[in-house]
Structure formats: structure tokens, C-alpha cells
Write a protein that binds this DNA or RNA. Structure first.
Length: 279
DNA sequence: ATCCAGGCAGATG
DNA sequence: CATCTGCATGGA
């Protein structure tokens, strides 16, 4: 990829390792829109407008440095893709099918709240809840709403969480926000992965699966392999595995893929979901 | 109508 | 430690 940065814009050419639609629909992010002429990505207080056509991507962003980091533009995905494809079979197919998926470096607070809402939920409703959360409690920007700050999140009552459609997760969300108030995110970043994972699991609404998502998407711990119903389906149908416990399946897969776990998981998840939609 | 969705918490053996 | 159950809500 060749990257040019202008004042409020990034222009990328040679984009075979960056497909916006796939990267948005592989399950790592909820606050985005796919419009006829562009993709809009929201994260914390930012809005980034992206256009992709014939081997070129343009990203309009107020904070260009943030966008460079967010889209993980300094990482070589070609190398990782090849290593994952070497595992053969369905992995090779999934990489080919999902070519261009990148793992974004997302905000810790937004990921924690988003993935607690995601548990035992469906994607349209998760997105709806998050957009409503921003509309009602986020700062109004120029034509959109920022993700609420932690101070604002603390003030949200259980009733309010229920009103935006988070269902029975409302209770956990109230408790979680209180717990987060007492934590230092910079200290978390410095923890080794296992310690950090245990710390995350100790928080309200966060279990092994949600912790893996937060580790991967917010803390860039690439050795986590989040195992949800789709990965489980893949494990049983395509790998013909017999293990039932998601936690054990996750451990098996992450020990197989090491630091490539996160990307491999995204490819497989995207592959299974897109194929299922065609039915 | 019944089942399911990017699972988790709490209770029970 | 492993397994079981209830859970809000909306879409298929």
C-alpha cells in the first residue's frame, strides 16, 4: 500500500490489502454506515468518511494521525494473510474470500460497552442500541453524535439503558460503568495478556468471549481468538471438531494460530456469515 | 408461533 | 471444576 497524507485526508493506492466493506462487515465494529457513494466510520468523537474505487481509497478525517492508527495502516497484512492461508483448506478459502480485511485499533471504552451489549444479541439490534446511546447521551457534533464520555455514561440509569434496547444487560452496564470509573486504562494497556484478560472477566457483563473481543479490537492482542456461535459452527462443520465448550475451542484455535489468531478469526467469521446470508 | 442472536451470571451437583 | 438455566428484545 502506498499512503499519502494530506491535511484532512489520507489517500491510499495499491489497496489489495484493504477492503473497506469487508473490514466493516467482519464483526469488529458496529457504528458505521454503508452508503451508495461512501462508507462512514464513527469512533469515540470522530467521524471518518471513506471512499473506495478502482484501487484507491480516500479517507477524510479531522484527525489524520488518529485515522492512520485506527485503520492499522502501518501493518503488513500480506505477510499475515500468506501465513494463515498456509493452514490450507477452509483457511485458505477464507483468506481468499475475505482478502482486504484489516483489524482496526479501536477505543477501549467504546469496545467495552459495545461488546457487553453484543452478548446473546443480534447485530442490527446492537447497532441500533449503540446509535441510540450516542444520540441520547453523546455530545452533538457537526451532523452526528459522539460516543458518550465515561462521566456521561456513569449518569445513565438502568431504565435509560433499557430504553435504548439493551434488555437485561442494563443492570450489568450500570455496574460496569461504575467499575470503569475506578480503573486506569493506561495501566491496563501495560498488563500481560493473561492478566489483562482475567481483569476484564472480573468486570460486569464481561465473560471469556467478550474479553477476547476487547483484547483483540481495543488492546491489539492478536493472539486472542474470540469464539462465538459462528466460530463454533465453523469448528464443528468445517473442522469436524467435537468439543462443545466455546472457551476450550477458543484455546485450541489460539494455540494453533498464535499471533495470527485475531486475523484468522476475522477471516473465518466473515466467511461463515457471508456464506450463510446467501442461503 | 417458535427460534435465535458475536454469552454471561448465578445456582447447583 | 463442569454443567444447567434464565435472561429482554426484535427479526426471521
Amino acid at each position: 500500500m502506498r499512503i499519502k497524507t494530506l491535511r484532512n485526508k489520507i489517500v491510499i493506492s495499491e489497496t489489495k490489502n484493504f477492503d473497506l466493506r469487508k473490514s466493516l462487515e467482519c464483526g469488529q465494529i458496529f457504528r458505521y454506515e454503508i452508503l451508495p457513494d461512501c462508507f462512514i466510520v464513527y469512533e469515540t468523537e470522530n467521524k471518518m468518511v471513506c471512499r473506495q474505487n478502482k484501487g484507491e481509497i480516500e479517507i477524510e478525517a479531522e484527525d489524520v494521525d488518529r485515522a492512520l492508527s485506527y485503520f492499522d495502516l502501518m501493518t503488513d497484512y500480506e505477510k499475515m494473510d500468506k501465513q494463515i492461508a498456509k493452514h490450507g483448506g477452509i483457511f485458505e478459502k477464507a483468506v481468499k474470500f475475505g482478502k482486504g480485511i484489516r483489524i482496526f485499533r479501536q477505543d477501549i471504552l467504546e469496545m467495552m460497552i459495545s461488546f457487553v451489549i453484543s452478548a446473546n444479541n443480534n447485530i442490527p439490534r446492537i447497532r441500533k442500541s449503540l446509535f441510540k446511546l450516542c444520540e441520547r447521551f453523546g455530545e452533538e457534533k457537526d451532523g452526528y453524535f459522539a460516543f458518550p464520555t465515561l462521566d456521561r455514561l456513569i449518569s445513565i440509569t438502568q431504565k435509560d439503558w433499557e430504553k435504548i434496547g439493551t434488555g437485561y444487560r442494563a443492570k450489568s452496564l450500570v455496574k460496569l460503568c461504575g467499575q470503569l470509573k475506578e480503573m486506569n486504562f493506561d495501566e491496563l494497556k501495560a498488563l500481560p495478556t493473561t492478566t489483562l484478560k482475567n481483569k476484564l472477566i472480573s468486570l460486569a457483563g464481561i465473560g471469556p468471549k467478550v474479553a477476547d473481543c476487547i483484547l483483540l479490537f481495543a488492546f491489539s492482542r492478536q493472539d486472542s481468538f474470540p469464539t462465538d456461535v459462528w466460530i463454533k459452527k465453523f469448528y464443528q462443520e468445517d473442522l469436524h471438531g467435537t468439543e462443545e465448550d466455546a472457551k476450550k475451542i477458543s484455546e485450541m484455535l489460539s494455540s494453533q494460530f498464535g499471533h495470527l489468531s485475531g486475523l484468522a478469526q476475522q477471516y473465518v467469521y466473515f466467511y461463515k456469515r457471508e456464506k450463510a446470508d446467501k442461503n
